[in-house]
Amino acid sequence: MLFGSILLFALVMVLFALAYIRTGWISRITPTQWIVGGGLVLPIPVLVLLTGTALVLGEQLLPHGRTPVTIEAHAARWNWTFSYPGGTTQAGDVLHMPAGQPVDILVTTEDVIHAFWVPRLGGKIDAIPGHTNTIRLEADRPGIYWGQCAEYCGIGHDIMRFRVEVHSAEDFAARFGGEAR
């Protein structure tokens, strides 16, 4: 996507420059060629291909069915509480996850809209009052990551961060329940 963009950007700017430098051929391009070539032939295949790929990819990222491990993330101004399969609930802004398997995070909120986001692990999902949203994440290996609230939620929005501790699947199962794969 990045290289395609650089290419298209360069094309437009070069054409703009050529319009002034005036090599002969560019002034012989007919109006129809400009409109059909630049306006239709150039963008349509690019856009169709890109959108198609993005939709297929998007389908794969969706939480189809249910993963063995689901974790509930409950946001409130301005902290996070996480509940695990074994029935443990922990306040204190630390999320524990098993490595190497997809995990569904069910995101809810106590008050205003927040958003659950661990930039290193994937996209974000909003916590909407009255609704439960699900995002499927997978961490490749154990480690520490950072997550944060990505939807503006008032004065404490800056500090509404949480730590993500990814454990090996066995360690996670031992501590928080759920089946290791």
Partner: peptide
């Protein structure tokens, strides 16, 4: 639902491209 809006968002680039190239073509010719 996201797909409908995603596709429409991508498509709106086409009328924009038509105008951009009409402007460049005007300068060029």
């Amino acid at each position: 639902a996201l797909a409908f809006f995603s596709a429409a968002s991508a498509l709106v680039a086409i009328p924009t491209a038509i105008q951009i190239f009409a402007w460049i073509g005007t300068l060029a010719s």
